[in-house]
């Protein structure tokens, strides 16, 4: 099977890092560029992190830097969840001169034309870069086979009562994406991401794998951060938040849906994004009952096969060079 050409747009981010490592390991994609955007932490970190991830994953594609702020409404960051540098304080050296001088909006469009309709975009941060691309090149959707995002929430949010972080960071950007006319817009929302997780037993097993591969330091930092965050909350609070009974990772879950859509329940809906209300800012609204009489504009993941996700995660982790030390 030929490799699927893919642009990754990301604000790494511990779980972004897992997603990129998983996709690189899958061998299913021809990753054409990694585009950094503001989000979990500021662009000054996400571009460095993106570069480090590219090198760690052994990719040769360019890394570009895009928007440093939301289109319109600036929001606070999520350093509390990802550590000050976005990768839970992992220390590393990269040469930032290696960051491409080309902007994501031009790279994405040029790649889209080059691949003649086969290119896919996987966006797991705020959608500012994609929205700018669409504003600058409104015909982009004609050349995109599938646009997949981690974002939105059908019920509970993690940024206010209903807002999901990526979307709440730049709801206007999602609005632009929703009305852009993508042929296929797959939305892996918070609710569905929370159906894919590693059980405590699986996580413990992975944490203790004697690995010597480039992923390991990243993996360990992420695992440690997850364990530490877990201690900050009672099980009751976690349950109220809607957290899974184990170790989640939204971007990793959405990467799994990108690679293996057959393992997710996908349904088409008409989706809107609220940008006027303060209380509901960035809420994704799905017209479950067809009240707006509009054609569906997203394919929403409703649930993910947890066992398949866990098995894939383990397989991908094994696949890095070095593998398990015997």
């Amino acid at each position: 099977m030929s490799l699927r050409p893919l642009i990754i747009d990301t604000d790494p981010g511990g779980d972004d890092a897992q997603a990129i490592m998983l996709l690189a390991a899958s061998g299913m994609f021809n990753i054409r560029a990694i585009c950094a955007v503001h989000g979990n932490v500021g662009l000054e970190y996400t571009r460095r992190n993106a570069l480090y991830l590219k090198e760690t994953a052994g990719l040769t594609c360019p890394v570009c830097q895009g928007a440093s702020e939301a289109l319109i409404a600036r929001q606070p960051r999520a350093a509390y969840a990802h550590g000050n540098n976005g990768l839970s304080g992992l220390e590393f050296e990269v040469n930032e001169d290696k960051i491409s001088r080309k902007h994501p909006w031009d790279v994405i469009y040029d790649e889209a034309l080059h691949w003649g309709g086969e290119l896919e975009i996987f966006a797991i941060g705020p959608l500012t870069n994609i929205a700018i691309t669409l504003l600058r090149h409104p015909d982009l959707p004609n050349y995109i086979k599938q646009f997949t995002i981690m974002g939105g929430a059908a019920t509970k949010g993690n940024s206010g009562a209903y807002g999901e972080f990526n979307i709440a960071q730049d709801p206007h950007a999602l609005k632009i994406c929703l009305s852009a006319g993508f042929k296929k817009f797959v939305m892996v929302d918070l609710d569905s991401c929370r159906t894919a997780f590693l059980t405590d037993e699986e996580a413990e097993y992975l944490d203790n794998l004697p690995m010597s591969n480039p992923w390991k330091p990243l993996y360990d930092k992420f695992a440690m951060a997850q364990r530490e965050r877990r201690l900050l909350m009672t099980e009751e609070q976690r349950q109220k938040m809607g957290f899974p009974k184990g170790r989640g990772g939204c971007d990793a879950a959405s990467a799994f849906v990108l690679a293996h859509p057959e393992s997710a329940v996908l349904e088409d809906y008409f989706c809107l994004c609220e940008t006027r209300s303060t209380l509901n800012f960035g809420q994704t609204i799905f017209d479950w009952r067809g009240r707006f009489r509009e054609k569906p504009n997203v394919t929403l993941a409703r649930s993910i096969d947890r066992d398949a996700y866990a098995a894939w995660y383990l397989e991908m982790l094994h696949s890095y060079d070095g593998g398990i030390e015997s």
Binding site: K156, G160, A161, Y162, Q237, K240, M241, L272, C273, E274, T275, R276, S277, T278, L279, N280, Q283, I285
Partner: peptide
Amino acid sequence: TEPCHVEVDIVGQYSKACTVTDVLCR
């Protein structure tokens, strides 16, 4: 039932009349 903070949205473009329910009372 669960104790929540509920506020009614009266300005939203699509969310007007939503009883915004924060189960965590953030």
